[in-house]
Design a protein around this nucleic acid. Structure first.
Lengths: 137, 137
DNA sequence: GTTTCAAATGCAATTCAGTTGCATCTGGTT
DNA sequence: AACCAGATGCAACTGAATTGCATTTGAAAC
């Protein structure tokens, strides 16, 4: 059983061709993938709605996490092991390339301390960056 | 001439009722406002397209800045004086309330240093947070 | 291996934010 | 008062994402 199939059974999801291919596609990319990108990769082998539902399900189970691009379009990337259904450990930096619009999940060492005004309760902070990625440079 | 009218003439924009009302509405709020929120406030006194265009124009001129909410919906807030047509100084924290979905622009003292992998060129970093705002608590 | 059924898929239709084209109107300058 | 670039209103459109429903399928039970 390959890694994709393992991830699925591990989270109580049926091991279907679509889901396996979505996951292995993500494994091969170093950036977060959009629905449109996946649809192109499937090239008619799966309905667009099925892909949307596969992405939503994978996110709900904590297998992938969702990032909104600067263009407002959702992208998805495989989570680290620390992610669970209950908590997404997305303590990393999302780098948005201004040229290709791709979003990259990069490691980050330390997070800044943040002081909020009275009455605001913080649950998490996120760091994002924009610029040009290594491929577009 | 009130502050809204002044902001408009200062940036070479016509001083129209819609734009004045959009700006004064934003001045009264302490969170970034969405198109839907504005449309409700106008209650038929302006076309939805006119509001979209007013927001786009104000953003282009550097009078307001745009934030994408976690829900993927655009919101707009008045800029600080440092914003110009050429550069938006949005060096502040965007706090996303998980309950009311409002986005607040909060001051932040210092930004973390970030080391990117080889080949990535940074143009700016942004800090965002989520939790519960003072009103929803 | 066959039965079984909840879950997954495919297709059509719908929603919702945002944009575009074009005719009309108006703020501000001459 | 005349003028006109820019602003507005209306209708139609786009594109991402969701929903309803009939059909199919993975995997567990027999």
């Amino acid at each position: 059983m390959d890694r994709s199939a393992h991830l699925l059974s591990e989270h109580g999801l049926k091991n279907t061709p679509v889901r396996r291919k979505v996951l292995s596609f993500m494994e091969e990319r170093k950036h977060a993938v959009s629905h449109a990108e996946l649809e192109g990769a499937f090239n008619g082998d799966a309905d667009r709605v099925t892909l949307y539902r596969a992405l939503n399900t994978l996110e709900e189970k904590g297998i992938v996490h969702k990032v909104l691009g600067r263009d407002g379009i959702a992208r998805y990337a495989l989570c680290q092991d620390a992610c669970t259904v209950h908590r997404h450990d997305d303590q990393h930096l999302h780098f948005h390339c201004n040229t290709c619009k791709n979003v990259f999940c990069l490691a980050v060492d330390d997070y800044p301390e943040v002081n909020l005004p009275a009455g605001f309760m913080l649950s998490k902070i996120q760091l994002s960056a924009e610029g040009i990625c290594d491929n577009c440079k």
